[in-house]
């Protein structure tokens, strides 16, 4: 554990609390992509298969269960409690390509050609692009509630903070996991445009609006 990893995980936790807070206070999931949320459920379920056989480190296990539980809970809220506020028509990014592409990448790049290793690699590639339906929805609506942008920022910052963590571990422990690092860099690049608008507008107190 180092400061970058810890801050990354805290940022990930914060993103989920911000999302739940947004849904609860506005009583609406408008502007939130159901498709991205569903992809995160798939990411956590395939990443954390090792919950079935351990080893169960307390910190990791609590976090894994929380990520699975909260993402399923968000899907439930969107599907039932706040269904009418869901932007069904606009939230239509073709996730089949993201899932298919990630699966191909997992078949090509994995630590061993076994079910759990292919699923683990799949989860990393899928996570790297899982935000795309959300960013696509943002693009189509052209603007977003400030709290929604805070959610997306915290979620993006989490993986961005893992990059210095990997550099630190590479230097200090001599270990590096290329699949995780490469997918993590792709993930952070996917957020680049969003980060730019977030820093130049939202942080300055302006509304998140994309140029027409």
């Amino acid at each position: 554990m180092n400061i970058f990893r810890l801050l990354g995980d805290l940022s990930h936790l914060a993103s989920i609390f911000i999302l739940l807070h947004k849904i609860r206070t506005t009583k609406s999931c408008a502007g939130i992509s159901f498709r991205s949320q569903a992809l995160y459920v798939l990411v956590y379920l395939t990443r954390y298969l090792d919950l079935l056989w351990g080893p169960w480190l307390l910190y990791n296990t609590v976090m894994k269960l929380f990520f699975i539980g909260s993402s399923v809970y968000v899907l439930y809220l969107m599907k039932f409690d706040y269904k009418p506020s869901h932007d069904m028509g606009l939230d239509n990014f073709k996730v089949e390509y993201l899932i298919g592409g990630s699966f191909v990448m997992a078949l090509l790049f994995n630590l061993a050609f076994t079910f759990d290793e292919v699923m683990w690699s799949f989860s990393l590639w899928l996570e790297s692009v899982a935000i795309l339906p959300q960013l696509f929805l943002l693009q189509r609506t052209g603007e977003a509630e400030t709290i929604t942008t805070h959610y997306i920022f915290a979620l993006g910052a989490y993986r961005a903070l893992y990059i210095p963590n990997w550099l630190y571990r590479w230097v200090m422990e001599g270990r590096v996991e290329f699949i995780a690092v490469f997918a993590g860099i792709i993930q952070t690049i996917v957020y680049a445009d969003f980060f730019y608008v977030y820093f130049t507008k939202v942080i300055q107190g302006q509304k998140f609006e994309l140029p027409a």
Binding site: R5, D9, H12, R47, D50, P55, L57, N60, M63, K64, F67, L111, A112, E117, W120, L124, Y162, N165, W166, R169, E173, R175, V176, E177, I179, A180
Partner: peptide
């Protein structure tokens, strides 16, 4: 494989 960096991360 358990010792791979990514395996003890989230």
């Amino acid at each position: 494989r358990q010792e791979a960096t990514g395996k003890d991360e989230l």
